[in-house]
Simulated scan of single mutants.
Amino acid sequence: MLAALNRGPELAIHIRGAINNGLSETEIRELLLQTSIYCGVPAGIEAFKIPEKTINTMVKNGEYTR
Rank of each mutant, 00 (worst) to 15 (best):
I28P: 02
K49F: 00
L31V: 06
I28V: 14
F48M: 13
G22F: 03
K60V: 09
N6H: 10
E27A: 15
N61W: 00
L32S: 06
I50N: 01
G40T: 02
L31W: 06
A12K: 10
C39N: 15
I55F: 01
N21K: 14
S36F: 02
R16G: 00
I37A: 12
I55Y: 00
P9L: 13
K60L: 12
T35R: 09
E46L: 03
K49C: 02
N6P: 02
N56M: 11
L32E: 05
E46V: 00
R7G: 01
L33R: 12
I19Y: 03
H14T: 07
P51A: 10
K49W: 01
A18F: 09
Q34E: 12
N20S: 10
I15S: 00
P51Y: 03
P42T: 06
C39H: 05
G40N: 06
R7T: 02
G17H: 09
I13R: 14
A3Q: 08
V41G: 02
H14F: 05
G8V: 08
E46H: 04
L31H: 11
R66A: 12
A12Q: 07
V59D: 07
Y64W: 09
A47D: 04
V41D: 08
R16V: 00
T57V: 01
I13S: 09
E46W: 01
I15A: 00
T65S: 14
G44K: 03
M58S: 01
L32F: 04
G8F: 07
I13Q: 15
N6I: 08
A47H: 04
M58A: 06
S36W: 00
T65L: 10
E46Y: 03
R29F: 04
G44A: 07
I50E: 03
A3M: 11
E25W: 01
V59K: 15
E52N: 07
